[in-house]
């Protein structure tokens, strides 16, 4: 069986303990952390240099910056999967990224959230199960059967 490619992840989070937790969880579950950024500028610089597959982004960053500014600056990186991990999902739209996980979240929920975003990037679809406090920002091309209530109704 072909071994899965190690996915590179950028972390944008201004809280030390939270950033540290994300990093150790990612490493523990077999991801590669290509950088931790505290500000929008740092995140953009790391992304340009390291070309990550995924980004875990907090909305409120140091120096008053917003995580959504990172997504806007990197909008040309169409293969970058963006998962917001934030205290407040208000005001996030499809233009900002792929999904959002609301703090506090557990490690396994973070990992599952990233898997869903990676799947979205690779196939345009997503499969259940969704973690707690997880929300898709973009609509999948073809939602899986279980996510389409009308299809379920037809089938029964």
């Amino acid at each position: 069986m072909e071994e899965r490619r190690v996915l590179k992840v950028l972390i944008a989070e201004d809280d030390l303990m939270v950033a540290d937790m994300i990093k150790s969880a990612l490493i523990h579950f077999g991801f590669e952390v290509c950088g931790i950024a505290r500000t929008v500028q740092e995140a953009v610089a790391i992304a340009r240099h390291k070309n990550p597959d995924l980004a875990v982004i907090d909305v409120r960053l140091a120096d008053g910056g917003l995580g959504t500014e990172i997504a806007a600056e990197l909008s040309d990186l169409t293969n970058l999967g963006i998962l917001y991990a934030t205290g407040n999902k208000q005001n996030l739209t499809a233009a900002d990224g792929h999904a959002c996980l609301v703090k506090p979240y557990s490690e396994v929920d973070l990992i599952r959230g990233l898997e869903i975003v990676a799947e979205f990037i690779a196939t345009g679809t997503v499969s259940p199960l969704f973690p707690r406090r997880f929300y898709l920002l973009k609509t999948p091309v073809t939602a899986p059967r279980s996510l389409q209530p009308d299809k379920l109704a037809e089938a029964s």
């Binding site: 809280d15 540290d20 409120r60 506090p104 490690e107």
Partner: peptide, 21 residues
């Protein structure tokens, strides 16, 4: 306050995860 509460809860979860790991 809201921001700090969320981050504090997140830190608590990370403390638990780290201790068990």
């Amino acid at each position: 306050l809201n921001h700090r509460v969320k981050n504090t809860l997140q830190a608590a979860l990370s403390i638990v995860a780290e201790a068990f790991r």
